[in-house]
Design a protein around this nucleic acid. Structure first.
Lengths: 358, 358
DNA sequence: CTGAAAGCGCTTACAG
DNA sequence: CTGAAAGCGCTTACAG
C-alpha cells in the first residue's frame, strides 16, 4: 500500500474527507507517464497490454475515481431504488430493467430506500442520509424508483442536480412533471370481473387495496364498471380493503364467507391476498374453484406454485422495469416524451381457480 | 436560448454527444471574468449581489451543471454478477448483499452474465464481450458471482486486473485460490434424513441434483451417512437425479411411486423439485403428509406458499449474500482470510409436509 | 507504443 | 469587489 493510500486510510478513520488520487500519483505508482495513464482511463487502444495492466492495478490501488464519470456518454450509470429486494415483485422489475440496461449499454446500481433514521452512519457526520444522498454521492445520472414514493423535497433535490427520475407504479398521484410507468389497472380489473360475470357469477366480491392508493382506486373503479355493465349495482358488503399481504387476504375472505349471503366468486387485487383467500376458503370447508372462484392480480410466480393454479391479471413487471429504463435513457438524452404517464397493458391469465357458477 | 445551447440541442437530435457549457461561456454571457463565475459556483462571499445575480442568470441560461462534484473516492463499487435475476434465489442473495453493502458503504452494481454469443453489440466492435469485460469497463473493484461458474480464463483476467472475486455456491470444485461462500450441504442432508428416520420412516427416497454438481454430491453423501447411521444400506432404486426444476421433481417422484415397493418418505434436494413432487403425489391419489412425507431443500418463499407448507432445509441465502460482500470487502482491504471456503450452517425448518410413519 | 509539450477548464492567491 | 495571472488536473496531437 502506497504512502498516499495510507494517509487516505487514516483520513477515513478520522472522518476527514479523503483526497482524490491524481494521475501523477497513479503514473508514479505504475512507473509510466501521466499521458499513458490518461490514455488507459479513456480506453484508447494505443497502450500495450502490459502497460495497461500496470496502470489498471495502480488505479485500483489508489481507488481512483473519475471526476464526472458521466462525461463518457457510452458508459452511463443509473440507480434502481426499491423499497426492498426480497420477493417476486422487485426481482421481476429488476430483471426487466437490467435486460433493457444491457441493451442500452447502461449500468445499473441497486439501492434499498431506507428511512433516514435507520441509517447506520447517521451519527458519523452524514446524518439524514437518504436514498437521494446515496444517488448523488454515487454520481448516478438517473433514477428509477420502484415501490418508493418520492417526497416533494427529494424530487426537488434531484431536479436541482439535474438527475431525471422515473417512478414505477406510484401509490399516489405524482406531480404532473414526474414521469411514471404503471399498468392499466382499471382495464385489468374490468377484464377480471367480466371473466367472472361471463361464467355466470353475479355475487362477486372485491378485495382491493387501501383506498388512498392510486392503483387500488383504479382497480375498484374497473370492478364497479364491469358490474354496472352487467346491470349490477354496488353491494357495499361485498367490497373490502386489504393491505396486499397474505394474512390480510385471509382475513377479508373470512369476513366475506361469514356473510348471510356469501359471494360465489372473489376478485382479489393481489396474488398474495388471493393465496391468503385460499386459506380462508379451505378453513370454511369449501373448495376452489368448485365452490367459489378466485381471481388474483399481479401474476407473480407464486400464482403458479399454489394449487389450484391461480387465475390472475398479469402485470407485465419485467416490461415495466424495461420501459422505465428506456424512458429514463430518453430523458438523459434530452428527448421529448409523448406522455409523462406510461401505462402498459394487463392481460388476464386464466388458470384453474375459476369455474362456471354451479 | 444561447447559441451554444442551440448547438447542443442540434447535437442531441443528430445523436452527437452534448457539449457541456464552460465557465468561459458563462462569463461571456454574464459579462464578467471566469474567476468571478468560479467564485459564484463555489459559494464564495466576495461577490457583489448584482454580479452574483448576473452570473446566476447566465448559469441558468446555459443549464450549467456541476457533474460529479460530490463523487467521493471513499465510496467503492462492486459488482454482483448472476445467471439471472428472476426468482427467489437471486432476490434473496441480492437482498442480503445489498444490506451488507449498505453497512459497509459500498455500492452494488448488478449484471446478468450472458454468453458472449448473445451479446447484442457483438457485431459493433465489442465482440466476445462477457461479464468480465463489463466489470472491467465499469471499473468495479470486486465481484461476487451468484450461480455463475467462472471459467479459468475469466478468473485469470480478473486476477491480472487485480479485481478480487467471491463465488457463491460453486457448482464444481473451484481452484484453491478462489474464495467461495456456500452452505453445509452435507450436514443439511444428514439432518433432513435423520428427521424422517426419527419419525419411523425407513424407505426414504432421495431426489438429488446432477451428480457432477459439488453440492448435489455433498447432499447425497449426507443422506447416505444418515441412512447408514440407522443401519440402512444403499437402495439404488430409491436414489434419483433431477435437474432442480419443478417438472423434473414431478418426473422423478412419479418414477419412485411406480416402484413395486414405493418409498414412504421423500427427501428432495430443492424446494422447486419438491413442489413438483407434490403434483406427482397428488396424481397418484396420495396425500402429503398422511400417505407420504416430503422434505425439500432451500427454504425459498415458495415453500410457504404451497399447501401443505413444506418442511425443508433452510439455506441462509441472505446471509450468504451478506457474507460474500463482507468477504469481498476484506479482500479489497488486503486483509487475510482464515479460509478461502466459507460454509454457513443450514437449519431444518419443520412445517406440515412430514408426519410419522403410519 | 511512449511521453514531452501544448492546451483546456477550472480554482485561487493576490494586486488593484 | 474584481479580474489578471499562476497553477492544477487532465487530455491530446505529435515527435521519436
Amino acid at each position: 500500500m502506497c504512502e498516499k493510500c495510507r494517509e487516505n486510510r487514516e483520513r477515513i478513520v478520522t472522518g476527514t474527507s479523503m483526497q482524490r488520487a491524481t494521475l501523477a500519483q497513479i503514473a508514479e505508482t505504475a512507473g509510466v507517464s501521466v499521458s499513458t495513464v490518461s490514455k488507459v482511463l479513456n480506453g484508447r487502444d494505443d497502450v500495450s497490454r502490459d502497460t495497461r495492466a500496470k496502470v489498471d492495478s495502480a488505479l485500483r490501488r489508489h481507488r481512483y475515481v473519475r471526476r464526472g464519470a458521466s462525461l463518457d456518454p457510452a458508459v452511463r450509470t443509473v440507480d434502481l431504488v426499491m423499497s426492498g429486494l426480497d420477493g417476486s415483485w422487485p426481482a421481476s422489475v429488476a430483471s426487466g430493467m437490467e435486460a433493457a440496461a444491457y441493451e442500452a449499454r447502461v449500468h445499473v446500481s441497486i439501492h434499498v430506500a431506507r428511512s433516514a433514521r435507520s441509517a447506520p452512519h447517521a451519527a458519523g457526520g452524514t446524518a439524514g442520509q437518504d436514498w437521494v444522498d446515496r444517488v448523488l454521492e454515487r454520481g448516478s445520472e438517473g433514477v428509477v424508483l420502484g415501490l418508493v414514493e418520492p417526497a416533494s423535497g427529494q424530487l426537488a433535490r434531484l431536479r436541482q442536480a439535474d438527475v431525471p427520475c422515473v417512478v414505477i407504479d406510484p401509490l399516489s398521484d405524482p406531480p404532473p412533471d414526474v414521469v411514471s410507468v404503471g399498468t392499466t389497472n382499471w382495464a385489468g380489473a374490468y377484464e377480471a370481473t367480466s371473466h367472472l360475470l361471463q361464467r355466470g357469477h353475479r355475487r362477486i366480491a372485491l378485495v382491493t387495496g387501501p383506498p388512498d392508493h392510486l392503483y387500488a382506486r383504479a382497480r375498484t373503479a374497473g370492478y364497479h364498471s364491469a358490474m354496472a355493465a352487467a346491470g349490477l349495482g354496488p353491494a357495499p358488503e361485498l367490497i373490502r380493503n386489504g393491505t396486499y399481504d397474505r394474512a390480510s387476504g385471509a382475513e377479508q375472505v373470512r369476513a366475506l364467507l361469514a356473510l348471510p349471503e356469501p359471494p360465489t366468486a372473489l376478485f382479489i387485487c393481489s396474488d398474495h391476498m388471493a393465496i391468503g383467500g385460499y386459506e380462508a376458503v379451505s378453513e370454511a370447508g369449501l373448495r376452489v374453484p368448485e365452490d367459489i372462484s378466485v381471481v388474483g392480480f399481479d401474476d407473480l410466480p407464486e400464482a403458479r406454485w399454489v394449487s389450484p393454479a391461480l387465475t390472475t391479471v398479469r402485470q407485465p413487471l419485467k416490461e415495466m422495469g424495461g420501459s422505465a429504463l428506456r424512458t429514463l435513457v430518453r430523458l438523459l438524452n434530452g428527448d421529448e416524451l409523448e406522455t409523462p404517464r406510461i401505462e402498459l397493458a394487463t392481460t388476464l391469465v386464466v388458470r384453474d381457480s375459476t369455474a362456471p357458477l354451479r
